[in-house]
Each structure stands twice: as C-alpha cells, then as structure tokens.
Design a protein around this nucleic acid. Structure first.
Length: 219
DNA sequence: AAATGATCATAA
DNA sequence: TTATGATCATTT
C-alpha cells in the first residue's frame, strides 16, 4: 500500500479510531496475545500491518515515501501517556559522521503519526480501544531541544564517556538501555580511545513530552 | 506515582 | 548482530 500524502495515511488511521484491538484483529484474522509479556511490540506491529508500513526493521521512518513515522502511544483513560516512546538506537561508533540533520532521530521525529490507545494494564489487550490518531510535527523550538539533547549525547559518547550517560540525560530525548538483557554488550569507544564493550542504548521520548503533544492536540 | 533500568519477539 | 516494535519490573 502506498500513500500519496501524510493526510491520506491519517484518514486511514482515523478510520480505525473507536475500535478495540480485538475487533480489528477479528476483521483481519489476527491473533491477539493474552498479555504483552512476551510480545511487547505486538500492538505497534499490528498497527503497522493494518496501515501498510513498509520499513520493517530498517532504520528509517515507517512510511519513507511520505516521510512519516508511526508510533502507538499507550494512554490511560484521562489521556496521560503510560510509557516513554522508543525512537532509535543511540549510535556508539563512527560518531564523526553523525550529524543531527539526517540522523534517524531527526528523520523519524520530523513527522509522526501518533496512535493513542487506551491501554491501562487492567484492560485486557483485546478490549483496548484506539483513540483518535493525529499527525504531529515538532515546532522550531522543540526541534532545537531535540537537537541539543541529541548532540550532547553524541558528544559525550565521542569523548568516551558513555558510562556517564543514564536516563537522567536529555530534556525531551532520554537515553536508556535497549538490549535483549544486561549481558548483551556492543562496541564503543572508551576514555582513552580504546575499544570497550557497553550496553546498547536507545533514544526515548519522555512521557512528559508526549503528554504535552497530546494536550496541544486535544485541548 | 513517576522515573529508571531490564527485558522479550522478530526480521534482515 | 543490530535494527525494529515496545512494555515490564524495580527503584525512587
């Protein structure tokens, strides 16, 4: 499926609003897991399937032809985000060629289709309801903050100080582990330019920021 | 309750 | 192995 414009994708996404995951799964003959313990990404992958995303696990927006990234967003009944939003892995090597402009983070966050889902933990997966999807683009000021969060992270890692980065880093974009487990290590540069092994990290959007995005759109 | 760190499935 | 999709689980 190819979309001519972000708006066309939006219309398709909005046609799903109000349905539960169970109803949508039945329509498409998909199986809904009882819980997300072993399939944490199921909801996002199902929605990508419904909307015809093409990027699979490539490091680029889900809909490259129209430059849109799709994100499901678990919210409670009052509209508060329940989780942070994963954006991309944090590059740890060959950082000399990493620039904000053109980075995976910049490309993905340039245009996002948010799909909020009422997903309080007490609600069975099948009963979780899609709220109204919407398109979002960061303001100039938001882009500046995203960019400085990104650049400060890259600069710290370039200095060989990845070990000083934890989840307190970053105003909007935080850095947290993104790995199979805490034994899965990857290469990085140490303080003296030597190769060290460290936990893979990911960029995540803080829930306080997605909360602001939702507020702007629904107030 | 919110924040931080840990973890699971799957594709290429 | 590293990227995607994230949520789980423990600590503050």
């Amino acid at each position: 499926m190819a979309y001519d414009s972000p708006e066309q994708l939006l219309v398709k996404a909005q046609s799903l609003a109000g349905f539960t995951l169970g109803e949508l799964a039945q329509q498409y003959e998909a199986l809904v897991p009882k819980n997300l313990l072993r399939e944490k990404g199921w909801v996002g992958q199902f929605l990508e399937y419904l909307l015809g995303a093409e990027s699979a696990s490539l490091a680029q927006p889900d809909f490259p032809s129209i430059g849109v990234e799709m994100k499901t967003l678990p919210i409670d009944a009052t509209g508060k985000p329940l989780e942070s939003t994963y954006v991309s892995v944090v590059p740890l090597i060959n950082l000399h060629q990493v620039q904000w402009q053109g980075s995976v983070v910049q490309q993905k966050l340039a245009h996002v289709l948010w799909i909020p889902i009422i997903a309080e933990k007490h609600i069975p997966i099948k009963e979780r309801t899609l709220a109204m999807p919407f398109l979002w683009q960061p303001t100039t000021s938001e882009i500046q903050t995203l960019r400085s969060d990104f650049e400060e992270t890259i600069e710290t890692i370039s200095m060989g100080r990845v070990d000083t980065i934890d989840a307190r880093f970053g105003e909007i974009l935080q850095v947290r582990p993104k790995a199979a487990n805490n034994k899965a290590l990857t290469e990085c540069m140490g303080p003296d330019g030597e190769l060290i092994m460290t936990l893979p990290r990911g960029f995540y959007i803080r829930p306080q920021f997605t909360k602001r995005i939702l507020k702007q759109h629904f107030n």
